[in-house]
Design a protein around this nucleic acid. Sequence first.
DNA 1: AATACAGGTTACCAGGTGGTAACCATGATG
DNA 2: CATCATGGTTACCACCTGGTAACCTGTATT
Lengths: 113, 113
Amino acid sequence: MRKTYDNPFDCPVTRTMEYIGGRWKPIIIFLLIDKPLRFGKLAMFMPAISKKILTQQLRELEEDGIVIRHVFREVQLRVEYELSETGKSLLPLMMAMKEWGKTMLPKSDNAQS
Amino acid sequence: MRKTYDNPFDCPVTRTMEYIGGRWKPIIIFLLIDKPLRFGKLAMFMPAISKKILTQQLRELEEDGIVIRHVFREVQLRVEYELSETGKSLLPLMMAMKEWGKTMLPKSDNAQS
DNA sequence: AATACAGGTTACCAGGTGGTAACCATGATG
DNA sequence: CATCATGGTTACCACCTGGTAACCTGTATT
């Protein structure tokens, strides 16, 4: 869902998908809106994700300047992920996604076939 | 990008991604906002898409109640795709995606690595 | 009869994405 | 010294998504 975008007309909608189109990215961004979270905490909010994929999605978000990774070498190693200013600018979009999603019934209940 | 969503907490953001998370779906929806378009016209706006994938994405959007397919058996066969009311309700979300995308430089110009 | 056009379908294939399980480094704890 | 927790990395694999190319149906057109 990332390098495969060609975006021939440099469509802004497509460009947005290049950033947040990953399998778990919208949820991660959404979880980080309120406050920074640790790696383990993020994993707990997404029980179906593996550590590998969580790491990978976070690295991509970091590369893309959406998320900032902070390492604290404390009593126990602590790694926190925080939204950057760019990431925070996604707030209206995330809210629009949340609002639209709330108006839709869960897909399984909505099947027309 | 479709059946693989488990969405354990029935997160509305994730639910939105179930609908519009497809490779070409946001662009298709965006193109249909102004007016219905024929299959061939859609294909012209997306030169990189194959007929198979375009058909597939449109079928999924149709199944999900986002798009309505109209077949006109005229002089030449004509098939038009139109946003349903549900599809039209995506307008604010699509605009939010467009606006955010416009604020971001093309990814290649923005690379930090 | 052959060809063109619209709107597909089908068979087949490549690659990316995600998943599992094992392993690792560091520091604390028993 | 062995073990646990955190936050990963690595090897390996399955599957889904997307892609190509050929073919199809129906209605003109030449």
